[in-house]
Design a protein around this nucleic acid. Structure first.
Length: 274
DNA sequence: TAGGCCATCTGGTCCT
DNA sequence: AGGACCAGATGGCCTA
């Protein structure tokens, strides 16, 4: 439940840590006794195992090792320390930015958000995002096809040009439109519903609400077959009662127009393979 | 307790 | 030369 969020919040990945780090670091540098290896004072909470309990001789060896890679420039230990700290700090910031971007991706993913929902792992986020994009592409193609079917013969627009129409959604049912009976939600496929499912089962209000409002538990990968519901799709697994697609590699949507993507070997989700 | 996920450190490589 | 990027190693936290 909140375990993950609390875990995340307890994780010092925020930039503040850098400040703490640097201040603590300055202390350690100023109070430097000369017995700390070049990698130590940077990580007060954790001391790398390989450096733990090293003698000053070992530390000297480490320092020399580093010196050799620095063209043996004559740098004082404090200088080496500050360089190492700077590098570490940059790397921390880089990873923090990466995590921020990952959070941004999670936010726009059609997946349940909220404190009661376990946060998607990074790999799950990436795989789900990929599937989401593929489905959006499929939906777009499907919509183009339908629109060209509708307008292609009537000569209303003389073809499909979304730039002129803005969005695909007209206000009301279109004359002769196959989905005219669904006036409340015209031929708009929910992005998460595979086109095949949409075209065969058509969207129903419950289907939409199930996708948009349900806050699933983290049943991302192990959805019972029954939970697939009436949607039926190209996905092997679906989220528990949510109609959420499974991001695992088994459930790749192979859209014809992005076939090149499907050839990309995706790293297998460890939890999928087990 | 094992396994998954993550943050961090670190050294190497590439780029500007 | 300095910074960005990457991958391996390590250890902590959490869950089943």
């Amino acid at each position: 439940m909140d375990s993950d969020t609390s875990r995340v919040s307890s994780r010092p990945s925020s930039p503040e840590v850098d400040d703490i780090f640097m201040s603590a670091m300055k202390k350690s540098v100023h109070g430097f006794s000369g017995a700390v290896s070049s990698t130590q004072s940077d990580s007060p909470p954790e001391i790398p195992a390989d450096l733990r309990g090293h003698s000053s001789a070992d530390e000297d060896a480490l320092t020399l090792k580093m010196m050799s890679k620095k063209d043996r420039k004559l740098l004082s230990e404090s200088e080496l320390q500050s360089i190492r700290l700077k590098i570490n700090s940059r790397e921390r910031k880089r990873m923090h930015d990466l995590n921020v971007a990952m959070d941004g991706l999670r936010e726009v993913m059609p997946y349940a958000h909220g404190p009661s929902v376990r946060k998607l792992s990074k790999i799950a986020t990436l795989l789900l995002a990929r599937n989401y994009i593929l489905m959006l592409s499929n939906s777009l193609e499907e919509m183009k096809r339908l629109v060209s079917e509708i307008y292609g013969s009537s000569g209303h627009h003389g073809g499909f040009h979304p730039s002129a129409c803005g969005t695909m959604t007209h206000a009301g049912p279109l004359p002769g439109h196959p989905t005219a009976s669904h006036a409340s939600h015209p031929a708009v496929h929910h992005p998460l519903l595979p086109p095949a499912a949409v075209s065969t089962a058509s969207l129903s209000a419950p289907g939409i609400s199930a996708v948009t409002s349900v806050r699933p538990h983290h049943g991302l990968l192990k959805a019972p077959a029954a939970s697939a519901g009436p949607l039926g799709s190209s996905f092997q697994h679906w989220g528990v009662g949510t109609g959420m697609p499974c991001p695992c590699s088994m459930c790749q949507v192979p859209p014809p127009h992005v076939s090149s993507m499907s050839t990309v070997s995706m790293p297998r989700l460890a939890s999928d393979s087990k």
